[in-house]
Simulated assay, not measured.
Amino acid sequence: MTVIDMNHFTVLSNNLEKSKAFYINILGLKEGYRPPFAFPGAWLYVGDRAILHIMAGRSMPINAAGVIDHMAFTASNLQAMVDTLKQYNIDYELQRLKGLEIWQLFCHDPDGAKVELDFPAHESEPKQ
């Protein structure tokens, strides 16, 4: 057996609607089918793939297990993303990755999960 692809990330949320609003309104994911689990949540899609699962209705762990630092998405239209983040008063950091010259934008979801958005090198520096 070998790993052939990334399937999805799961994030925990204190406020499902707030989390959904971030990932749908800010990042442009779409809510889609989710099996009828006994706990609240959402599956968010890019195309026909559910790439992000949100779990709610549980207490946030005091000492979270694991060492995942952030999740990263490939994105496009850097200027539109910067404008949207400003509109929603979401802090972000933007840098050009040396060597590859891609743009890396970092922000946090409503529950503090770190999100990286990678934009193509050919995109112009956004007007801040």
Rank of each mutant, 00 (worst) to 15 (best):
P35S: 14
K114I: 10
S13V: 04
G112C: 08
M71Y: 14
P36H: 11
D109G: 05
E123F: 02
L12I: 09
A50P: 14
H70M: 07
Y92R: 03
G99F: 02
A42R: 07
G28K: 04
I54Q: 07
D109C: 00
Q104K: 10
H70E: 01
Y92C: 00
N14E: 09
I54A: 05
P110C: 03
R49D: 13
L16Y: 05
D109E: 02
E93I: 07
N25H: 06
R96N: 08
Q128S: 09
P40A: 05
A113K: 08
V115L: 03
R49K: 11
P61S: 08
G66F: 10
A21T: 04
S13E: 11
V11F: 11
L52N: 11
P110G: 04
I54M: 07
P36D: 15
V46I: 15
A72I: 07
H53I: 04
N14H: 12
Q87Y: 06
F73D: 04
L27Q: 02
I68M: 11
W103T: 14
F22W: 06
L105I: 05
S19E: 06
R49T: 13
G99P: 01
D111N: 12
M1T: 11
P40S: 10
P61G: 05
A113D: 06
L117M: 13
N77V: 09
S13K: 06
R49G: 07
F39G: 11
C107F: 04
Q87R: 04
H8W: 12
E31I: 12
I102K: 15
